[in-house]
Amino acid sequence: MLNIIAILVLFGAIQGFLLCIYLYFKKKENKAAFNNFALFLFSLSFFNLTYALMYMKISILGIIPLTSFPFPYKYLIAVGFYFFIKSQISKEEKVISKYDYLLFLPAIFYGILRTYWYIKLHTGVDKDIFWNVYKTGFFTYNEYAYLIFNLLLLSLSVKFLIRYKTQIRGTKISQKNWKWLLKFSYVFIAVIIFNLILAVIVHIVGDQYNGIVYSFILILNSIYIYWVGFESLTKSNYLFNTFRLKKQNSIEDKTSSILAQKLEHWMNVEEVFTNKNLKLSDLASLIETNEKELSIFIYESFKMSFSEYVNRSRIEKVKTLLKTEDQKKYTLLAIAENAGFSSKSSFNAVFKKVTGLTPTQYKASLKN
Rank of each mutant, 00 (worst) to 15 (best):
S68H: 15
L2G: 13
N311I: 02
Y186D: 06
L103E: 04
I192G: 00
L113D: 06
K235A: 07
N150C: 11
L283N: 08
F351V: 05
F109E: 12
S59P: 06
T140N: 09
F40W: 10
L161E: 00
Y110W: 14
F341M: 13
W131H: 15
L218A: 15
T242R: 04
K91P: 09
A260K: 15
Q261P: 13
D126V: 06
Y82T: 05
G211A: 10
T115R: 05
A107T: 02
E337N: 03
I7G: 05
Y186T: 08
Y330T: 02
T140F: 08
E316S: 12
K94L: 14
L154M: 06
F302G: 01
S97V: 02
L49A: 02
L102S: 15
D100F: 01
P359G: 03
F341D: 13
Y224R: 03
F109I: 11
N368R: 06
G111Q: 10
I96C: 11
T234Y: 02
K135T: 09
S155A: 07
L39T: 10
L41K: 04
S215E: 05
S157G: 00
G211F: 13
F17T: 09
K344R: 15
E316P: 05
I85L: 07
K292D: 10
E29T: 02
E325R: 07
I14E: 04
F149G: 01
G80Y: 00
Y224I: 06
E308K: 15
I217R: 04
K98F: 09
M267K: 04
L366Q: 14
Y73V: 01
A199S: 14
M1T: 03
F160A: 05
V158A: 14
L283K: 06
T171H: 02
G62L: 15
F83P: 00
I5K: 01
L44D: 00
A199Y: 03
G111P: 04
L103S: 08
A349Y: 12
F297E: 09
F42S: 12
R114D: 09
S45E: 00
S157H: 00
E337I: 03
L152F: 13
K276H: 08
L76S: 04
L53P: 05
N338E: 08
N221G: 14
K91E: 11
L113N: 09
F81Y: 15
N368K: 12
Q175G: 06
N36P: 03
I296H: 05
